[in-house]
């Protein structure tokens, strides 16, 4: 099992260098840290929530079919219930009418959980950004781990996003300040569900999560 070059090496078990581990591996002896094993296991059995919003969902389904075969990455078990899912793929336009339900689904998912914003709409509203009923990016209400641009992203792009997420999961630590979000006791797991207001959602975005980024601009 060779790691991608950009990958941060895990703290190895004992005082064994990576070269020595590689050597042992060739002799059929696997030495691993718990952290590595934990990340490896989690990253290869991601169960996505079976939940499609719009056009991008069709490409998500296409990614699950024979040609692209998301099963190669261990993520073919689409669960219809949020209680059984690890990954929410927000595939499509999130409308304001739908946003509270998306947040509710997210809150119902158990930790550890991850979110992929698939497609321009989920990232920013995409082509429908001008719409009065269109949420300008799901990251206004829930934290997003991976953004996949495209309209729609090709299934390959979704697979690439998924492998990026796997890398991210493998790099997560079990303890310490860099521990994974779900292992930090004070990190939020549930997010407030917006209400339907008379003109807009109340609040229109979650202020703890979303602040308009500062534009780097020349004077």
């Amino acid at each position: 099992m060779s790691e991608p070059a950009h990958h941060t090496p895990f703290p190895s078990a004992g005082n064994i260098s990576d070269a020595e581990r590689e050597d042992l591996r060739r002799h059929g002896i696997l030495i691993s840290s718990l952290e590595e094993l934990y990340g490896w296991g989690r990253s290869n059995s991601i169960w996505p929530l079976q939940f499609g919003l719009a056009c991008c969902a069709i490409e998500m389904i296409a990614a699950a079919t024979a040609r692209f075969d998301i099963a190669r990455f261990g993520a073919e078990i689409f669960r219809p219930s949020p209680r059984q899912a690890d990954l929410m793929i927000v595939s499509g336009t999130v409308t304001k009418k739908m946003a509270p339900q998306v947040v509710r689904l997210w809150n119902q998912m158990p930790e550890p959980k991850y979110c992929i914003a698939m497609g321009a709409c989920a990232i920013s509203g995409g082509p429908f950004k001008q719409g009065y009923n269109v949420l300008k990016g799901i990251d206004r209400f829930i934290p997003v781990d991976i953004y996949i641009p495209g309209c729609p992203p090709r299934p390959e792009a979704l697979l690439h996003g998924l492998t990026q997420l796997q890398d991210k999961i493998r790099a997560e630590r079990i303890s310490g300040p860099q521990a994974a979000r779900h292992l930090q006791p004070d990190a939020a797991s549930e997010f407030p569900v917006p209400d339907f207001g008379a003109h807009d959602l109340q609040p229109p975005s979650n202020p703890n999560l979303f602040t308009a980024p500062v534009l780097p601009r020349k004077a």
Binding site: L53, A54, C55, G92, T93, T95, K97, M98, Q101, P127, F128, Q130, G131, Y132, N133, V134
Partner: peptide
């Protein structure tokens, strides 16, 4: 209404040709 994306409203403020990609969606 859970996927009401305001296609008609957007099309009324876009040129005729500009709505063509929206019809794809």
């Amino acid at each position: 209404g859970y996927l009401h994306r305001n296609h008609e409203k957007i099309a009324e403020s876009t040129s005729y040709l500009g709505s063509m990609p929206y019809t794809d969606r």
